[in-house]
Design a protein around this nucleic acid. Structure first.
Length: 457
RNA sequence: GGCGCGUUAGCAAAUCGGUUAUGCACCGGAUUGCAAAUCCGUAGAGGCCGGUUCGACUCCGGCACGCGCCUCCA
């Protein structure tokens, strides 16, 4: 029985899909004007894990993750770069695809783009105006009338009064209420625009997610996810738009992942303290990064540092080491096995990956002790449900971390062969010298009954 | 100022009202030519102050500190 922490209820709830056996899930994706950083990595990996676990649990999942390919920052960046918006967004969509693939993130079923849903957005805006929830401001922009929507603030737990009290937004005199937000922006010189009943312009950010989720998942769907920073105002506004246009519940379960931090501060573009995925992946195997992300519960803060990545690497190495040298048959997971049961219980408890990992480590210990092929197969397949342990163990352990490596596998093998001769001749001084030389090059040797194996530190 | 979250051993990170979390690091032992890996074992925890309870890291209250949202942000 899967339980999910629902941000809307501020409580863990038993997951009951709208349609038995099916899950429709929407996640707010990237605005593509720059490379993805670790905060983006966390969203991608976390909801990939969620989608995988739902599928493992037998659900037929439709996973939608949007791409925001038109907004202020994109326009600004394209102008700075003196390139077209299409060229800019095209480049960064490709970069995003490369980064997510490296992290073992499966493609969502649908990746809708904002610019391909303008008619749907216009239609929704019309309906909101008809329902008395939107109006044309004095500057020609179309605004959502927040005070007309009963329940505004229910997701973020804020009342309109509280929000006004903490007002930090510059008062826009074109709005009826300072908290009203824009649905449709009238065109400014030199900006991309589309025709609309309210004149040429472009969509406000919040509107695209309401329009795209409506288009691909319908008026009412199961799970909506995103980073915790989107809870307000983005998701609050989505609720206002979608429920205001549909007159029905929008989403049953809202999920928000915690932030990635640096020195206990949120990693963000505005603070400038971010690391891109491609930067980190140069130093650490992408699977280590995935492991690091899933090692913390998805709702907890995740502090990034090279040392923490190093720890994650050591831990992942232990799992792969347990699998090394075992011929693993492709057998179905035995969920009635004690380890399988505990793993499932952990995952069903709001996707408790740290607890699930603990089970994997205990399984690894069991494999190391018994050499049991069944246990090894279970370890691997449980790991696989999280998108981990999919590679050949030896290949993982010997995989280079790019620029750092000075020796090729062939060179290492040559050293090992030389050392073997020295050892046969009982020339241990020479054997140890070779081992030391390799160690300095980041190569660790392990002498076993079947000969010497090696791995990279 | 309003609202919310967090504080677990050297580091990371879960569970749980009473029984070993887990990983890394550390210490002792086994194994090894010596190592590495592995195994066995030891040690180490719950911000502070109260309350409830036979018993609290776990529930309740207060305090302190940290973080986040209230503005674009994953």
């Amino acid at each position: 029985m899967l339980k999910i922490y629902n941000s809307l209820a501020r409580d863990k709830q038993t997951f009951v899909p709208i349609e038995p056996g099916k899950v429709r899930m929407y996640v707010c994706g990237m605005t593509v004007y720059d490379y993805c950083h670790l905060g983006h990595a966390r969203v991608m990996v976390v909801f990939d894990m969620v989608a995988r676990w739902l599928r493992t649990s037998g659900y037929d999942v439709t996973y939608v993750r949007n791409i925001t390919d038109i907004d202020d920052k994109i326009i600004k960046r394209a102008a700075e770069n003196q390139e077209t918006i299409d060229s800019l967004t095209g480049r960064f969509i490709q970069a995003m695809d490369e980064d997510s693939a490296a992290l073992g993130v499966l493609r969502p079923d649908i990746e809708p783009k904002a610019t391909q849903h303008i008619p749907q957005m216009l239609s929704m805006t019309s309906r909101l105006i008809e329902n008395g929830l939107a109006y044309v401001g004095s500057n020609g922009d179309v605004f959502y009338a927040v005070r007309e929507f009963t329940g505004y603030g229910k997701l973020s737990g804020k009342s309109l009064e509280d929000l006004r009290a903490g007002e930090r937004v510059e008062v826009d005199t074109h709005k009826r209420d300072p908290l009203d937000f824009v649905l449709w922006k009238s065109v400014k010189p030199g900006e991309p625009h589309w025709d609309s009943p309210w004149g040429p312009g472009r969509p406000g950010w919040h509107l695209e997610c309401s329009a795209m989720s409506e288009q691909h998942l319908g008026d009412h769907f199961d799970i909506h996810g995103g980073g915790a920073d989107l809870q307000f105002p983005h998701h609050e506004n989505e609720i206002a738009q979608s429920e205001g246009a549909h007159n029905c519940t929008f989403v049953n379960y809202w999920m928000h992942n915690g932030f990635v931090r640096v020195d206990d501060e949120k990693m963000s573009k505005s603070l400038g303290n971010f690391f891109t995925i491609r930067e980190v992946v140069k130093k650490f195997d992408p699977e280590v990064l995935r492991f690091f992300i899933l090692r913390a519960h998805y709702r907890s803060p995740l502090n990034y540092s090279d040392q923490h990545l190093e720890d994650a690497k050591q831990a992942l190495t232990r799992l792969y080491t347990a699998l090394r040298g075992i011929e693993i048959p492709n057998i179905a997971i035995d969920w009635s096995n004690a380890y399988g049961e505990r793993f499932k219980a952990a995952m069903d408890d709001d996707f408790n990956t740290p607890e699930a990992f603990a089970v994997l480590f205990e399984l690894a210990n069991e494999v190391n002790k018994s050499g049991s092929v069944q246990s090894a197969a279970l370890l691997k397949s449980l790991g696989n449900t999280l998108g981990l342990l999919e590679r050949d163990p030896q290949a993982y352990l010997q995989a280079g971390s790019s620029s750092m490596d000075v020796l090729t596998a062939e060179q290492v093998e040559q050293f090992i062969s030389d050392r073997l001769n020295a050892r046969k001749a009982k020339n241990f001084a020479e054997a140890d010298r070779i081992r030391k030389e390799l160690a300095e090059a980041g190569i660790i040797l392990e002498d076993g009954p079947q000969g010497t194996t090696w791995r990279r530190a």
